[in-house]
Design a protein around this nucleic acid. Structure first.
Lengths: 362, 362
DNA sequence: CTGAAAGCGCTAACAT
DNA sequence: ATGTTAGCGCTTTCAG
């Protein structure tokens, strides 16, 4: 071999490049680029000629090369904990929609509630040079936030809002939302109220809702009973099992706040299966307002959260911040209590009465 | 200005590059690259020195530049029609998991059942130089397949399997699966059977299930009544409305095949709400085996499809095909009928009887 | 309105 | 085991 390096200009797997297109249409690569970015001033004539060649060759520009050269990846990332709870899917879908319209692609990461896993996803997204990040919840190593900022990447927190925190957030306030639910129960005369929620150690939304439950109870002079507080995974079955166990307590609750509808629906169906009347024997208020909640029997009283709008706004704020080179603006979204059939006035020791009834029957 | 171009080597927004790392640790960029790709032979000593600098600077390599240079993007794309039906979420999550483990990032596209939208997503993914594509269903413009292949991108079809087609698929056979459901009903003595399914014009899975319904009926000497076939969107409410309408027919069905569980659960709950007994008044068999189906009352008889496994296998086959430079191997997955409480023996004109009962009560 | 050419940050031959 | 260097395919000044 006499020559130093044998790299013919188009030895590649036949994938066309700007150079070929430029050559074929008798213009420079710069012009092709201008035509394709469709923003520049190019004469109608040249544009037509170039486009003809582009179409003829089914030319698809190399976006990564473009990103490298322009230093804009036109990608954002979103990290959600799970897809088992459809609220995250709904939010992601909304993000996807606005991103797409703005010419951005979205990378989806699923952390499965693992901080290590999340850190890994963030690292990968940073490598891919996302221009922005949509995060779920606020609790994560300070290091990680530093790493994100250090790489010049903007982010916005969803599903968690605290007016006192410095991090940009587009979300509702879990504390307030949960308080509405608990106060609804208290106002119906319930004093003995149980809580079922997600795992507070890996989920700051669950933590916040739990904290709100406890403090709201105390604010009304009720001391929450730790034996009536269950933290479980996000599954129908977990809600079912939790409620079954809780109702075996010697002093069972007359009402339940179940801080997510997946567990709430599971629990509600279980109650019916056990022959309990809802809300006569037990009131239940859920959280999320999943579509199915209005169709179960009785329809579930629950807290409506704006999952879709949150996704939409988070993406809009993030992208506009990126484009305008400004910090992301926070917004607090509102929630509301949707009162349906699963909550009613407290009646003394209704579970015990129901139990007796069952015993008589069985 | 006397000089031609003013481009200082590190004027950028402070983001570190290999060159800086190489310089700081007194090695070449090639060595840094070797350390980071962790595959090459590098002395323990140099590796440690380089890693120290990497960590000190929180250096995150520019993945797009790497992709460009190595001509491997380490990305795959998946396109699903919606996230409203959680089976797609489940599948996507599985894909994500194996991709991540293999060092691939996944781009998620949501087509919302629009072919135009899907074509756009594919184009964008091709620009991003995905190395492979996981598609939902097989029906799309031949042009589009050509475009994908023309760009040297491998793909695999999911949720649709036909042994006669040339396209690589990792899926179950909708026709067979639906036939199991219909035959179950027929074997219980039902002759007047209705169908509720997705829109067959934009969804080849729905089409296939509908075709299977009609042909299986005929194979058993029953002519399907077009008035008992409803194509609807994927919503609980659509299932509800469809069943309500269908039962007003002068000769209502004694059984229903509802080709997806979202609609099936909606329909089932509606039946209960209308005071109908399931399966005494009406048998229902669903499709998908969503988690909730086993908890509704009565638990839904349905066809179990391997959403998670399909995602896992599709991703594995695709990635291994990419890595070994071979075509993607097809696999047909199996489904099974899960008989639960919503189906029972046919009883003559049970709906009419129920109606009379209701009239008597009302 | 168009072209020339210098990189974007990295990897992969090739050479040592 | 490590360094040199030529690109990857595109965008973007700057010049005309």
């Amino acid at each position: 071999m006499a020559f130093k390096r044998m790299r013919s200009p188009r030895r590649d797997r036949g994938v066309i490049t700007v150079r070929e297109i430029a050559h074929e249409s008798g213009v420079s690569t710069a012009t092709v680029s201008r035509v394709l970015s469709s923003s520049e001033v190019v004469s109608e004539h040249t544009r037509a000629r170039v486009m003809a060649v582009v179409n003829r060759y089914h030319y698809v520009p190399h976006g990564l090369a473009g990103a490298l050269a322009s230093r804009r990846s036109r990608q954002i990332g979103i990290i959600i904990p799970t897809i088992a709870n459809s609220i995250y899917g709904c939010c992601t879908q909304a993000v996807n929609r606005v991103a797409q319209r703005a010419g951005y692609t979205v990378l989806v990461g699923i952390s499965e509630f693992s901080p290590e896993h999340e850190a890994e996803i963030i690292h990968r997204f940073l490598e891919r040079r996302v221009e922005g990040l949509i995060l779920t919840g606020m609790t994560r190593a300070c290091e990680l936030y530093k790493k994100i900022e250090h790489n010049g990447v903007r982010f916005v927190v969803t599903w968690k809002y605290n007016s006192d925190r410095a991090r940009p957030a587009v979300s509702f306030d879990n504390y307030k939302a949960a308080a509405m639910a608990v106060e609804h129960l208290i106002s119906l005369g319930h004093r003995r109220i149980g809580l079922i929620c997600g795992r507070a150690d890996v989920n700051d939304r669950a933590l916040e809702r739990r904290r709100s439950f406890e403090e709201t109870m105390r604010a009304h002079g009720i001391e929450p009973d730790p034996e009536l507080i269950f933290e479980r995974e996000f599954e129908f079955s977990e809600g079912r099992d939790a409620v079954a166990t809780m109702l075996q307590h010697e002093r069972p609750p007359t009402a339940l706040f179940i801080a997510n509808d997946v567990q709430a629906v599971g629990a509600l169906l279980k109650c019916r299966e056990m022959g309990l009347s809802v809300p006569e024997d037990l009131s239940i208020v859920g959280f999320d307002d999943l579509p199915i909640t209005q169709y179960v029997n009785p329809p579930l009283t629950t807290v409506r959260v704006p999952s879709g709008e949150m996704g939409r706004l988070a993406a809009e704020h993030l992208i506009s911040a990126i484009q305008r080179g400004q910090p992301v603006k926070s917004v607090e979204l509102s929630t509301c209590l949707v009162v349906r059939g699963s909550t009613g006035p407290a009646r003394t020791s209704s579970i015990r009465r129901a139990r007796r009834r069952q015993a008589a029957r069985g």
